[in-house]
Design a protein around this nucleic acid. Structure first.
Lengths: 206, 206
DNA sequence: AAGTGTGAAAGCATTCACAGCA
DNA sequence: TGCTGTGAATGCTTTCACACTT
């Protein structure tokens, strides 16, 4: 076993990918598998899977393979996914509403506990489990609740301002759907999802 | 200038990223910049930017820098984004509706021209510009229209079946929001967006 | 003087190949 | 025998550093 810190950045993304597939295998009742089995459905090299896992421990049995449920638990523990994570949502437009109504996230352990918008027509409405609040209360509410994670789903025009408020409020990680770069301190974790960019990737070379 | 085929996979993703920032700079009226300027806001190495561009040509002026609008046009041409792209959407749930109502995509040149669902309560409804059709007509309708690109926004349970129909219908690229792996021929381009996985990435090591 | 374009070097990540264990 | 775990080799990508152009 290597040092966990040596694990390439992409390894973490792949561990999440493996975990997703393991959950799928469990639903199908597949209790055991080899790195070759998994590599085949995921279309990758089996050595890559073994190496990725080896940064964190020895989870398999030589000559046999891996136990699906056991490895899923190990991965959840490595990835910090064996607990519930609370999020604050800023921007209750099309995407924000989709997230609030999406039962999949809660199923995976992610829960939106507060939502904010600036539009008076939306403020006060209850969507899913939360009631939308005025974004002018964002900073104090988040600071007081101690929420560590946020989702930005506002327009490009408001994104930086919202990001600044979240950082001031003490948020440590931000998932951002706004199609623009956000400037935040290096200590803040930022994961962007830009749907138009992904469509662009799809279209390249077609 | 190197051969375009030598460009690393990640270079394409970064070109899209540069283009997005260039559009932002244009809105702010910034007509010229150096690789160092751009690298600073994007928090990256200026040499990386120059090298990425060098796979596709020489777009700058030594001693001066790059012209924002001109480079944006070049990038759009390299990335095939100087034309409109039509998509078919399958699955008009929370995410599907958000995409149909999202004006940002159309602004970027991506247009959803057909939408399908299996739920009779949704079929026949008009959302945004399109009327939702019965998914049982998916294959014939897409084949006949010759649509090359699709977005899958259905549940895990239906995703593979929908993917198969799309492939049969002749689709060449698929953006998939379903949180599961999809098996498609190697000739089909597949870009997955799994929001729960991105949240997992955000949470790792926190 | 300023900033691009690019070989060469350095730094990473992936794959191979096989020792080691059940 | 079968499959894991892993050092070593291979293959990529990023960064450096400087010749070159305006």
């Amino acid at each position: 076993m290597r040092d966990v810190a040596d694990a390439p950045k992409e390894t973490i993304r792949r561990l999440l990918f493996y975990l997703r597939q393991l959950d799928c295998m469990l639903r199908e009742g597949k209790e055991r598998f080899s790195s070759e089995d998994l590599a085949e459905v995921l279309r990758m090299n089996p050595a890559q899977i073994r190496k990725d896992l080896s940064y964190f421990g020895e989870f398999g049995t030589r000559g046999v393979g891996y136990n699906t449920e056991q490895l899923a638990n190990e991965l959840r523990s490595i990835l910090n996914l064996n607990k519930r994570w609370e999020f604050v949502l800023v921007g209750v437009g099309n995407i924000g509403v989709a997230l609030l109504r999406n039962p999949e996230l809660r199923k995976q352990g992610f829960e939106i506990v507060m939502a904010f918008d600036k539009d008076p027509r939306v403020i006060g409405k209850t969507i899913g489990e939360v009631t939308v609040e005025d974004v002018s209360h964002l900073r104090e509410r988040v600071e007081q609740a101690g929420t560590r994670l946020a989702i930005i789903a506002v327009s490009v025009e408001s994104a930086q301002e919202v990001g600044d408020s979240l950082v001031e409020a003490g948020v440590e990680g931000i998932l951002c759907f706004a199609p623009c770069s956000l400037t935040v301190p290096k200590t803040i974790r930022l994961v962007p999802i830009d749907i138009a960019m992904e469509l662009g990737l799809l279209v390249y070379g077609l």
